[in-house]
Design a protein around this nucleic acid. Sequence first.
RNA 1: GCCCCUGUAGCUUAAUGGAUAAAGUAGCGCUCUUCUAAGGCGUUGAUGUGGGUUCGAUUCCUACCAGGGGCACCA
Length: 578
Amino acid sequence: MIKEEIKNLVRQACLKLGFPVEEIVLEHPENVEHGDYSTNVALVLAKQLGKKPREVAENIAKTINYKLRTVNSIEKVEVAGPGFINFFLSKEYFFDVLSSILKKKGKYGAGSEKKKIIVEYSSPNIAKPFGIGHLRSTLIGQAIYNLYTFLGYKTIGINYPGDWGTPHGKILYQLKEKLLKGKTEKEKKEILDKITVQDLESLYVAFHQNTTLQMEEGARLWFKKLEQKDTEARSLWEKMREVSFREFERIYSLLNVKIDHVIGESFFEDKMEVVVEDFKKKGLAQESQGALIVSFPNEILPPAMLLKSDGATTYFTRDLANMEYRISKWKPDAIVIETGVEQTLHFQQVFLASKLIGYAKDEELVHAFHGLYRTKEGKFSTRKGQTIHLEDVLREAIKKAHEIIEQSETVRGLSEQEKAEVAKAVGIGGIKYNDLSQHPSGDIVFDWGKILNLKGNSAPYLQYTYARCKSILRKSKLNPIKFKLNGVKSSPEEMALLRLLYRFEEVVQEAAEKFSPNLVCNFVFDLAQRYNLFYNTNPVLKAETKELKDFRLLLTAAVAQIIKNGLSLLGIAAPERM
RNA sequence: GCCCCUGUAGCUUAAUGGAUAAAGUAGCGCUCUUCUAAGGCGUUGAUGUGGGUUCGAUUCCUACCAGGGGCACCA
């Protein structure tokens, strides 16, 4: 990567001059007059050396310039401002990037990292409709999965649905004591055959609207029965699972999300005893108020609970069994778990406990957390029945996209079926982008107006730009071009595009490292914006000369390719026409 | 009470300690006989408050203010 080349140049220059080199920071200056890359090493070094920053910068720049005679990707190096060293990339380099994009196409920017990484995401709870709350984990997790796969990692995606625990005891209680009470076997069967996720959720909501101690006790009892493999509890629970997964599959198919493995919490049901034994054996568990807990050295974290006072296991126990299972089965280099921010402490405890007990050793354990969708007033609460069902949102978005399409003149030639496909790509893409374009850790205020926004910084803007590019390319009959640099003077709009395209691979890298798909969004939006400006001021098909036309076609093809690659990482479709 | 996170334009968001804090949206103008106007151009407008570190702070430290989350029998 060009970035590394420049870092090396700086490093070598510093070594040659006898300057102590630490980390060299390169950034892209905002102002084009400051070049394509800039480093502040001179400013940092000046202090240590007791010299003037400008002077240090001049020395480094001079040394680098001397070397540049053999490097043709860099045009020049300048010292500016208080002592910044600015690098200007050459046109040769930009053209190399262009042809590289057109040659590698969908693989442009891909890496060849060989490590193995597990990404856990989505993880909805059964017996509840897929709420908007799980949208974030699904989308961000999928994007992280895509990013790492693109970089060459062996990625393993895991969906870890909540299909175990006392909430399910509550629903079983409600089913048994309310819905099925006093019914004949035949009636029971009829009710269960027709039951929907909505019904299950209503039972759950009803439980919390009017809870008595007796009900709480009943719920605990039913969960206990479930754990003890009581036939009736078991079959009702199976029914809940089945109904729920049918719903999830529908949502995933709408979202075009595919997760490699579904391993629910219940999978670890019989693997927790071992965990408890391990902790006891190693003297890492203590009894406290009838429960079994794990305390951490120096109380750096609050204690976590392995067994409740009634002997039932907890989420913590389950996640430990989960860690042990994943690590021994797949031997990954890293595990990334994508969940809401409210689970931060829990995962700190799980990660630390996994290391203490020896389940995890050198593996990198990451909790990539996201902020929550909230109302203007506060948090959504399932218990209060405030959930917004994702499916409603998705259908609404597609409907709205449809309306816009009907009003638009640009889709005149499209068949009804093509229009429907575009509506889906735009509606679903809009919702995905609305979510992914925001920094993961921030909260998102749920706003119908905003989530269905199809203008400005949104997926349709990017899709539209892509479709425009494709339209030009269709009309041009672009042939494999042998492009000559001679004789083409680039306009500022063209230069702006050239100076952006090569950064795609850096952005992908950074987005993966930081688990921040929003960086990809920022980049693609920026690119689309610059292309639209170019489009409005630089005619492609009617360019003054043949050379200019070819060049602009190349540029258009490269921009289209990068937008497509970026959207594909985000899981957003790019229709050829819209 | 203790711990963690977040305060940027009317609203929603960007910005690895750098050069003039960047967009979208809403408002007001302009722009289709010209490659898709779901576009483009112009214009108004912001770093919660007080200290500190630094050549340089939205970014780091500290106090305060405001909001959110967590702190053993939910997950």
